[in-house]
Design a protein around this nucleic acid. Structure first.
Lengths: 166, 166
DNA sequence: TCCTAAGCGGACTGAGCCGTCCGCTTTCGA
DNA sequence: TCGAAAGCGGACGGCTCAGTCCGCTTAGGA
């Protein structure tokens, strides 16, 4: 069940091109544009992915996996507050580089990559809250929802997430 | 140069329908949908507004005017910090009720309504900064950009906007 | 080398959109 | 009342997009 060499090469090209297009223009980038950038026909894009949404999920889940890894790495950091803040900055950077990351969040809610991300962020949040470094009334979902804002206003978001009255 | 009675009635209906559609679905609501909701033909929408963007500007500038009025009213409040926070809450509420408000911001940059809004917010920001109630590294544009986030996380944004270390 | 199945890509379909146009209807002043 | 001008709305064109299809090409094992 292995792909023919040319098919595998084209699949790789499509994934790279889609990744770039989505990063630059968001998920509204058209399949034609992706195909053109990949140097393949537009039919080739749809051969591996039955719908455009499937392509988006494939690409974004990959990138979500990378963010989940930084979250898991942050869990190794001893200072819970610094670990949390570091993750928010990393995630904000990832979002800056890749507009599609959270634009396509709804499509990725069911993926194992998103589950892993949420799990890691939940742990970061709980630890930071126990350490008194994070206000108690925010959830992991809230933190993820704040990432786009943190990419433009990191200090405002991080200060706003500290427990009030400290 | 006054409109015929039926034309005026239809124009009013279109404006109301557009307002509702944009509030619910954002500016992506189609002209057909607006026409249907207004109970008029789709050509009637385009008779008064040469393009869909012109319609968006007409509707959103009206609502921006209302927000500008709350900003100006806040300037009368003696407590600069409370005035600023109150405005942010009001603007966030307006955004919650009307998704189009800032989605269409780019189209409205040139309108007198937006000029008035920015002017009032600039004054609110300057006053709050002088009173030590607002961090110095934010501008009126930043505040407006933060409104959508404030509609979901008002406390986080308001706390984040306070000067650090106080 | 040669045959076959896998792969290719571009033409095609259909949906949804914006904006135009024109034959019919309605208003309203004379 | 009546005619001209204003207004109406739906059919239409042109565009972009997602997704399908099929005749041609190519990989790669026998």
């Amino acid at each position: 069940m292995t792909l023919r060499a040319d098919a595998q090469r084209n699949l790789d090209r499509v994934l790279v091109a889609a990744s770039e297009c989505f990063a630059e223009r968001g998920v509204d980038a058209s399949a034609d544009e992706i195909a053109r950038r990949a140097g393949v026909g537009h039919g080739t894009v749809f051969r591996r992915f039955p719908t455009k949404d499937a392509l988006i999920v494939a690409v974004v889940a990959m990138q979500m996996h990378a963010v989940a890894e930084t979250a898991e790495a942050a869990l190794a950091e001893p200072d819970a507050g610094a670990a949390f803040a570091g993750f928010v900055r990393d995630a904000a950077d990832a979002y800056t580089r890749n507009r599609a990351l959270l634009d396509a969040l709804d499509l990725c809610l069911e993926t194992p990559e998103f589950e892993a991300l949420v799990g890691a962020v939940r742990a970061l949040v709980a630890r930071a809250q126990e350490a008194g470094a994070l206000r108690r009334d925010v959830t992991a979902d809230d933190v993820l929802a704040l990432v786009p804002t943190a990419s433009r206003f990191p200090e405002v978001v991080l200060d706003g997430l500290r427990p009030p009255g400290r």
